[in-house]
Amino acid sequence: MSSNHSAPLAATLPKPSSPLVAICLLLVAMLSLQGGAALAKSLFPIVGPQGVTALRLGMGAIILLFYFRPWRLKISGGNFRALLIYGLALGCMNYVFYLSLRTVPLGIAVALEFTGPLAVAMFSSRRAIDFLWVILVVAGLYFLLPIGHGVSDVDLLGACYALIAGACWAVYIIFGKKAGSSYGPGTAALGSMIGALIFFPVGMIQAESSIFSMAVLPLGLAIALLSSAMPYSLEMMALTRLPAKTFGTLMSLEPAIAALSGIIFLGEELKAMQWLALAAIVVASAGSTLTMQRKAKIVPVEIKNTADRPS
C-alpha cells in the first residue's frame, strides 16, 4: 500500500501514451481488484473465508517473492519491528476482511474498510475543512451500520470485521512507510511472507475443506493474480502519467466499483439509503485527497495503493 516500493517497478513499465489511457488502466486495476474479491467470495461455500485467506496470502506471497526477489536487494538498517507489524497488519487485514464478506455485501465491506486510510489522511492534516469529510464519513457509517435507526440490515458482526480490516489498513499504511524506508521495493514481498507465515496455517486449519484440491488451487491462483499482480502493475503504470491527487481521487471510486462488482458477479443488492451512505464515504475519500496539503505526512498515493489488500 505504501508507494515506497513502487519506483523500481514503475521504471520497468512502459508509460501510457496519455492521461486518458492512464485513467483507463487505473479503472481496469480497480475492476480487477474487486473482481478478485467477488471471485474470493464465490469460493466461500467450498473452503470458507479462512480457506480463501490462506490461498490469497500464500499464493500472493509466492508471486511477490518471485517478482521482487528481496534476497537480491540492498537493505539499509533494517527496521524489522516495523516490517513485522506491517506483515501482521497485512495478514490480519485479509483475514478479517474475508470474514466480513461472509455476511456483508462487497460494496459495503469496502466502504467500511475505507474508514482506515481515511482516518490516517485526516489525522495527518487536522485542518478545518477535514471536519466536513469527518461529518460525511460519520453520516455514511450511521446509515451503513445497524445501530438502531431501522434503516440498515447489515450484519453487525460482519460490519465490525470490515471496520477492523480498516484499522489494519491504517496500521499497514503507517508501518509500511516506516518499513519501506529500510527495505525499499522488497517491503511488499517481505511483508506478504510474514503475513502468510502467520495466517496461512490458521486459514488452512480452519478451512471447511482442503485448499489443495485441483478444483480449488487454480481459483486461488486467479484470486492472487486479480487481487495483487494485475492491479499493482496497472496502478504503477498509471502513476507514471497521473498526478498523485488525480490518482488518489480516482481510487476513491473503489467502494462504488465494489458495489457494482457485487451486483454483477454475486447478485447482491443495496438499498437506496445504503447507496447514499456509500456515496458519502466516496465523496469524503475524494475530498480528503483533493484538499490534502502537499507537505502532509501521508500522501494520497500511499493511502490509496492497493497492492496487497484483499479488496
Rank of each mutant, 00 (worst) to 15 (best):
L239K: 06
A279H: 11
P16C: 04
N305Y: 11
L242F: 03
A280Y: 03
V216C: 13
L118D: 04
G140D: 12
I85Q: 05
K245Q: 04
I173P: 00
G191V: 07
M292V: 08
K177N: 14
K245I: 01
N305W: 09
R56P: 08
T115H: 09
T289D: 08
F123A: 11
A229Q: 15
A277T: 01
S261E: 02
T187M: 13
Y95L: 03
I198G: 05
P310W: 09
S209V: 13
Y232L: 10
A165M: 08
G180M: 05
R72D: 08
T115S: 10
S100W: 02
I129F: 15
Y232T: 11
V283W: 13
I85V: 12
A111I: 06
L55C: 07
L65S: 06
W71A: 07
M1V: 08
G176D: 00
K178I: 06
P45K: 03
A128Q: 14
V120T: 03
P243D: 07
V47P: 02
A54D: 10
T291A: 08
F44R: 04
P45D: 07
G140N: 14
A128P: 05
V21G: 06
A128I: 15
S6A: 06
P105R: 01
M1I: 13
S2Y: 01
A162W: 12
F143Y: 10
G116V: 09
I173H: 00
A259Y: 13
L225P: 10
P105K: 04
A159F: 02
S42R: 02
G116D: 07
A259V: 12
S192K: 05
P201R: 01
G36R: 09
S42V: 02
L156W: 11
I281M: 13
L106H: 04
A279M: 15
G58L: 01
Y232W: 12
M93G: 10
F123D: 07
K177C: 04
L219N: 15
M273R: 10
I173V: 00
F68D: 11
D153R: 11
T187H: 08
Y161W: 15
A89Y: 01
I46M: 07
R127H: 14
I281R: 11
F199T: 08
G48C: 08
P117G: 11
L156Y: 02
L260P: 10
V47M: 01
Y98D: 12
S228G: 15
S181H: 14
I303S: 14
M93H: 14
L266A: 00
L278G: 01
M214Q: 10
L136M: 05
L83H: 01
S285P: 08
G203M: 06
I223Y: 06
Y67K: 00
K15S: 08
L20A: 15
